[in-house]
């Protein structure tokens, strides 16, 4: 399918600025080298690749990002951040994108009712607490 987006970097300016504020990161520093994607250990779960996440943000295409699985496949392992030649911490941008969603009422990623069913007898508390912190507000 061919789709042609009209480039209007201003279209989501407010949201982009907010994401930059929450993450305290500067997306114009990125020059699309792809080092983040190349080193991402969870890249097989990314429908939009990490460097593409930044590109879409630069273009103001927030909606695509909020609908993606990529932001939920990020494990916040900081590999991308520690190697980025432009010192952009994508893990913080991923977090800001997730927060943009879960901070809206009724938008939790995880259905709290279903949590007990997900658990096996060995799962550490750490995983459950992390899950609540990352997926629920």
């Amino acid at each position: 399918m061919v789709s042609r987006e009209k480039i209007t970097p201003d279209m989501a300016k407010k949201e982009v600025v907010r994401i930059c504020e929450i993450s305290d990161e500067n997306i114009v520093d990125c020059m699309q080298c792809g080092k983040c994607t190349a080193g991402c250990p969870a890249v097989h779960g990314m429908d939009i690749l990490p460097h593409q996440v930044i590109r879409l943000l630069q273009l103001g295409q927030i909606d695509q990002l909020l609908q993606s699985e990529a932001i939920w496949s990020c494990a916040a392992c900081f590999t991308c951040a520690s190697r980025c030649p432009r010192a952009v911490d994508i893990s913080k941008i991923m977090e800001a994108l997730r927060l943009t969603l879960v901070r809206v009422k009724g938008n939790n990623r995880l259905d709290i009712e279903k949590v007990p069913k997900l658990l096996d007898k060995n799962i550490p508390q750490q995983a459950i607490v992390s899950g609540f912190r990352k997926y629920v507000k």
Binding site: P41, A42, G45, W72, S73, A75, A76, C77, L118, S130
Partner: peptide
């Protein structure tokens, strides 16, 4: 030093 997936085990 590669990530094990961490909390993704809850969701993915």
């Amino acid at each position: 030093t590669e990530c094990c997936g961490g909390y993704l085990s809850v969701d993915k």
